[in-house]
Design a protein around this nucleic acid. Structure first.
Lengths: 212, 212
DNA sequence: GCTATTGGTGGCACTCAGTGTCACGCAGTG
DNA sequence: CACTGCGTGACACTGAGTGCCACCAATAGC
C-alpha cells in the first residue's frame, strides 16, 4: 500500500519531520481552535523552525486538509476498478468509501480523523479549502464517469453532476459523523445518503431534454 | 425591491463609496488577475485609503464574491413563495433563477457578471470563498425545504441533500456560461441541469431505508 | 455664533501568513 | 582535504488584515 518511494534514509527522515509537524499542529489546532493558533505556536511545539514548516506544508490550512484529502488517486482507482455494468450509484458509493475505510483502518486513528473532520466543518477557512479539494475530486471523478459511460464531459452535464452528487453524499455523512460511531454506523449513513441521490445517478442515460 | 434602508443622505454616500471601490476592484482583478493585484492597487485606482477599503469589504475576496452572493435572502423568499404542491425540482429551479435573473436585469451588467463568474471559477481562493457562501445558501435552503415538507433537517438527510443538488445544478450552469449566451440560453442550461437531479429531488418522500 | 456630538475617513503601527535568499552543518565522493 | 548536494535555520521582505487615534464634516443644543 506504499505509494511513494521510501529511499530508506533521506525519505524516511523527511516523513518523520512531516509527521512531527502534523501531530503538533493537529493537537494544537483541534484543542485551541484554528484561528488563535499561529504557525509560531506549532513550530515551537514541534521544536522546529518556522521556515521548515512551510517546506512541508503549503499553508496552515494545508496541514489539516491534507490529513483527509490525500486519497484522491485511490478514489479514482477504486472507481475504475468497479465492474462496468454496475450502476453509477453503487460504483460511486464504493469509490468514496475508500477514504473513510482508510480512516478506520488504524484504531484510535479513526477518532482523530473524526476530530479533524469536525475541525474542518466548524472552521470556515478550512471548510473552504476542503471544498476546493472536493472540486478537484469532482473533476477527476467526472472524467472517469464520462469514460465509463462513453460521454463527453464537455457537452454532457451528467458526469460532473453525478460526481457532485456523490461528493454531496460524502459531505452529508461527514456532517452526521458522531463521536460514538463505529464503521458499521458510518456505512449505514453512507447507504442512507446514497439512497437519496441514487434515483438521479441511475436515471436513464439521456436525461430527456423535454424542456423546449 | 429595495431591501436596505436608504437614509437618503448618509446611506447613499456610503453606497457610492462602496460602488466606487467595487468597480475599481473588479476592473483591476478581472483584467490583471486576482493574485497580482494588491489592495493598494485597488484603493489607488479608487482614490481612497487602504483603511477605508476594509471598512466596506471584509477581504479582497469579499469584493468579488459579494458581487454575486448578496441575493441569499431573495432565494429563500422565492422558494417560500412557490406553491406548496409544486415538486421540489420546480420550486428550487425558480428559486435559484433569482440571482441569474438579477444579473440579466441590467444590460451590460450581465456581461460583467459573467466575467466575474469566470474570475471566481478560475481563481482557487475565490472559488473556495464562493463555495463557502454556497454552504450558507444550502443550510438556509435546507431549512426552508424541511419546512415545506414537514421534515426534521437534523434527522432526515433529504433537505440538505436536495438543497445541495440544486446548488450543484446552479454551479453547472455557471461553469457552462459562455460569452455569447443570452438569458434564453441560460434558462436552457438551467433546465438541462435540473433535469439531471430532478429524479432524486422529486423521489417519494421516504427514501426507502431498505439497507439493514 | 459657539460648542458638543456623531459618523466617516486617513494615517500609523502592529500581527501574522507566506516567500526568497543566504549561510551553515552534514552526509558522501574524488 | 577540497568538492558537492541537500536539508535546515535565520533574516528580511511583501501583503493581508486590525486596532487606535486624530481629523473633518454635518448636525443638535446652549
Amino acid at each position: 500500500m506504499r505509494s511513494r518511494a521510501d529511499n530508506s534514509l533521506a525519505e524516511r527522515k523527511r516523513q518523520l519531520v512531516a509527521d512531527e509537524l502534523r501531530d503538533a499542529a493537529l493537537m494544537l489546532l483541534a484543542t485551541k481552535g484554528f484561528d488563535v493558533v499561529t504557525v509560531d505556536d506549532i513550530v515551537a511545539a514541534a521544536g522546529m523552525s518556522r521556515r521548515t514548516f512551510f517546506r512541508y506544508f503549503a499553508s496552515k490550512e494545508d496541514v489539516v486538509v491534507r490529513f483527509l484529502a490525500d486519497t484522491s488517486a485511490d478514489i479514482i482507482t477504486e472507481l475504475a476498478a468497479r465492474p462496468p455494468a454496475e450502476p453509477p450509484s453503487v460504483a460511486l458509493r464504493h469509490a468514496l468509501w475508500v477514504p473513510l475505510a482508510a480512516c478506520n483502518d488504524q484504531p484510535e486513528h479513526s477518532e482523530r480523523a473524526r476530530v479533524v473532520v469536525r475541525l474542518i466543518l466548524d472552521t470556515p477557512a478550512l471548510h473552504a479549502r476542503w471544498l476546493e479539494r472536493q472540486i478537484q475530486w469532482r473533476t477527476e471523478l467526472a472524467a472517469e464517469l464520462a469514460n465509463r459511460r462513453g460521454l463527453d464531459p464537455h457537452t454532457d452535464p451528467y458526469p460532473r453532476m453525478a460526481a457532485g452528487m456523490a461528493l454531496l453524499a460524502l459531505d452529508t455523512v461527514l456532517q452526521r459523523w458522531q463521536p460514538g460511531d463505529d464503521e458499521q454506523h458510518l456505512a449505514e449513513l453512507m447507504d442512507q445518503a446514497f439512497a437519496v441521490v441514487a434515483p438521479a445517478l441511475d436515471a436513464p442515460t439521456a436525461p430527456s431534454p423535454r424542456h423546449r
